[in-house]
Design a binder for these strands. Sequence first.
DNA 1: TTTAGGG
DNA 2: CCCTAAA
Length: 690
Amino acid sequence: MVLQKRLDYACGGYRAPAMPHLPRSARGKRSARKKVEDNQTYAFDLLATIAGKLLSEIKSSPSPCNSTGTSNAAAGRDAAKQERIDEEKSLKCEGFDWLSCNEAVFSPENALEKHIAYKLKENSNVPKDTSSGPASPFIKSDLSDEDAIGGDGSRIEHGVGAAAEKCIKGSLSSSSAESYDRKEDGGKKLLVAEQQVAGNFMDRNAPYKYGLDDPLVMDVKPPLVSSDSSVEAPLYRNNISRNYSFPNQEDGMDLAADKDDDENSSGCTHPTPVANKTSRMPRIGDRRIRKLMSSKLRKVAPTVLQDAGTSNYDVEQKPALRGKRMCYTRQRTQRSSFKRRKLFDHCPVSPYDGGIYVKLSIKSFKVPELVIEIPETATVGSLKRTVLEAVTAILGGRPRVGVLLQGKKVRDDNKTLRQAGITYGDKLDNLSFTMEANPEEALVPPPSSEDPNFLGLACAAEPLARMPPIAPAAAAVDQRGPDSTESVQTCPDVDHDSFHSPIDPSSPEKTTASALALVAVPPMDVEALVMVPLGNKPKRSETPQRRVRRPFSVAEVEALVLAVEKLGTGRWRDVKLRAFENAKHRTYVDLKWDEPPRVQHCMIPLGSEFKAVGSAACHVPIVVKMFLFLWRAQDKWKTLVHTARISPQQRRGEPVPQELLDRVLSAHASWSQKQAKLLLKPPAALLTSQ
DNA sequence: TTTAGGG
DNA sequence: CCCTAAA
């Protein structure tokens, strides 16, 4: 072998043209992305949560918040601020902000909490990796919180809760705005949100209308849609308002329970009738709630939320909350089921109690960015599927996804992205998505309606709120610990197949052009990304999943044969280049997800608009990463030669025309000979010369 | 960074 | 399709 190489060099002196290397910078981007994704996921959750919160708010509209923590307020603030800062520093979550904001806006304490909890739960489920990783900012926030608190790893839930808390606090404290000095967008946004919320709370009885446009959200990402989210919720005042207080703080469990409930109630996260719980809760509730909220918030949107939340929160009574939080977090993490039960116990209030829930009409809301990686050669249809998967993974439900390029709907699912004009090079900014709830599904009540809290909500919010039950995987993850990547892979939720199918055989162009691959991003990846903690450990991302198998098309084979016939069997890099000029970023090596350098991705910042079920619409900024999958000519050739040598009956897969196989054998033989000759000759030459 | 090979 | 040795 070595000899051959040498010979080649000597003879041809040709070296394969150097391939353009992908910038390593990609890595960094990648990591960032992941973070984003994580955030995004959470964001969805958050959305759901928000919805729920809103509902709950309406219901509960508790007044107690303000009263709590008067004396401690100052100290709490400081602490909170610091925390925030820390979190921010550690995490830079852009996306979360909005969520938190939104949530804040919507949720009344209880409602928020619940919602959050639900979301959290869902998230928690999703986050199998949570334990493992560092995924979303939320997580980070959690961590930070934990650290601060000294608690164990809290999770997304916290973030949500925190957000909720913030919201609540914000709402409670009219002066919340001042507390936020932060320059960060998120922080500011939060402030705004809070303010709004506060206002809303004030007006509980009246239906709320928020201009969710939320400055908050907007900041984060460029293309983010400016969603105009207006939430309209008639607030019905239930008894809920009476005490939001949860059981004692000590029972962090309660919180946990709430969260669990949320999680469990994957179905309808949003609509949470707050009243139920709240009614039951003991008075301490305020604190608890706050705590919960804070914790949740932190988890969710560590940076922004925290800040905002903290500030408000701090003013009121942060310190206490922290401690509580920790407890509850831990409990939560350790025993989700248990938590759930507790929740019920605590908040057994029947939805009917008087709890009225608000009918929310969410016009739009923003969700954290969603990062999708997809090969340029993938079809529009596959893109839709991918986006759908990613979104539904978070939101649940089975909405329909549409792709908009420059505001124009791309209808032909069979076109490749390239054909549709969606290329990584440009125009990505113009890419957006629409998501429409499946009417049929929209009506379907969430399965987990058992939770009284959800009863009311069932409607509009529902679809969004629903989170896919990733629980199993998550559970696995938890047990395993952060490092276990496998858990992700195994995740039942994702439908891997859906992603793959994409390429349309009918379009030859595609195949040839992308001889490479259609591979779609496995849903898992998305999840993984989502889950991955911002911070420290990308453990999750590390475990590469096995690539999806994408058999070579006949066209690809033909291109390969042609190239080999011309170039021989030793210059695979050249072969690839020759065979697939179109693929600019091809390398002879197959691409791997986790190897940015090899992967070409196009980041497409998108402002996607999603029309959620019912009247809910949300803007989801989606980042699409496009990449080309390279196949390994070397390997393919190997198999081709083998295939050509075996009987047709033994062959499997897409039949390769005998003609091509014959050429394979022919080329292989001839090049083998040449190589052999080369090997032999040189020595002779040397000898002679010497 | 490419190739060659083996699993 | 993956992994690794070797260059």
